[in-house]
Design a binder for these strands. Sequence first.
DNA 1: TTATATGCAAATGATTTGCGTAGTC
DNA 2: GACTACGCAAATCATTTGCATATAA
Lengths: 132, 132
Amino acid sequence: MALSQRYRMTAQRRVILEELRKVSSHPTADRVYEMVRLRLPRISLGTVYRNLEILSECGMIQKLELGGIQKRFDGNANNHYHVRCIHCDRIKDVPIGPITAIEDALHGKSDYEIIGHRLEFIGVCTQCTKER
Amino acid sequence: MALSQRYRMTAQRRVILEELRKVSSHPTADRVYEMVRLRLPRISLGTVYRNLEILSECGMIQKLELGGIQKRFDGNANNHYHVRCIHCDRIKDVPIGPITAIEDALHGKSDYEIIGHRLEFIGVCTQCTKER
DNA sequence: TTATATGCAAATGATTTGCGTAGTC
DNA sequence: GACTACGCAAATCATTTGCATATAA
């Protein structure tokens, strides 16, 4: 929360960041916990949550807060969109840049001062397409 | 869950629907509970949750599952977008229709079969603009 | 009459937090 | 050495669920 804090690079924080950057699966916090625990068996789930929060605050990772119950985390901090499989909840990056035109569509039509948007695509992943 | 069920119009369900249609505030489940309790003091929170679920399943209301911790409900079942105030979380309808072109931008660029999108605008409401 | 719905309370599940100790800067 | 972070366990908060009873169709 405190943006003026001096953050320290602990082993836990480094490993969480490394593991998250290794995968493209957009894991939940407890999946990250599982992944990290292979290298740091004594790490606690609370530490994972705390660090995911701090890392996303610092802009080193991304916290995805769209559909779904659990939050997902993305080692790629660059702003980009995602597709979520409606059946299995698998999330994949989408290879298109930010569509700024979306906000233009709203110009002068809302009394809110528009500062951004959240967009997520819904679809069916290749695996689920096969299985049905 | 069971789509083949025969739903009954109980007093509780009717009042929840009526109250939700009265407001444009996109309340959380417990706000709906408060609203409904003025007319049905003995209703339980569980009943409110169960009915909000059923009503949105039937397409009579909308469940908003974008940013934020708590789900929000919308008495207007027509598909439309929302703006969320980044400071106070107030949600307002946005007077533009579905932007189908958004999905076209993705054509051929993802191996997911795209079936839709979720979009929410982020902004600052008039009240929060004044207060800052 | 009979399946669906309710009220109540307890359970669940994700996330957060308090606290005493450990480690970084 | 001072302050941030950790591990652990308990707390929180939104939401869901089991169960006995009530009610719509």
